[in-house]
Amino acid sequence: MNTPLALVDLARLVRETWVRHVDQHVELDSTNDRALEMADSVSEAELPLLVLADRQTRGRGREARVWWSAPGALTFSLLIALDPDRLPRSHRSRLALACGVAVARTIQESLPAVPLRLKWPNDVYLRDRKVCGILVEIPGGSAPRAVLGVGVNVNNRFHSAPAELRRQAVSLREVAKRKFDRTALLVALLRHLEEQFTELCDRPAALLAHWRRFCLLTGRHVHVKSAGRQLEGCCEGIDEEGRLLVRTAHGLERLVSASIAAIDPVPQERGVL
């Protein structure tokens, strides 16, 4: 049985990470919604604020996709302050990349032998299946803040999930054949989130370099939907702004907003992730 996050040592979270306040729930519709509700009312001294739920009943993903939640996943949202002097508005989109790198590094520490990749901009993949979803939202209130929503498949299993989902998703437990201490994983992840956020603000080029090392798509033929268009071509990674580079038959596309519709299989000689 999974240890309920209700039993997490909250004092440890505050003592060992950059979190200053924890808003913990056994069950929530969506930790992101809760964090967005609180964004304008909490003081700067309470940030970062961690909204933690043992279960999310309506966790959201991109385009209103609902996060399939099963017992054993780690789902939380972190409400942080954005200092415009440290992180200009034009760099805020890179928050998604920073979150992806933080999750990737956390998982890599636990599973160093398993190839781990990031699918632009911030989906975390183990063996070509998604292990973590991230949803970053920036509320329009008077104080510049961001909500970093993270859902990691830790001890949950997908044997009872819909067939399509079983082909696309995987948990750490299913890969490692063992259970994980979610509290320890959460502490490690919060530390990495702080590190990557600092890197994003102070050394953005270094963050992009770290992200590139995990890129799932570089060198692969991709099919992309972007603003009503469908493109295909060879992915050339990301540029200095974090935009996805796709070399099509008509030139190089720098994509700011896009979803990856399909990735051609990896040629045999390159090995399988």
């Binding site: 805020r92 970053v136 920036i138 008077s142």
Partner: peptide, 18 residues
Amino acid sequence: EEKTVCVIEAMKVFNEIP
């Protein structure tokens, strides 16, 4: 002034626009 009128997404970051 503070009413959100739309969301603009870039690189999977969703920005509420007041």
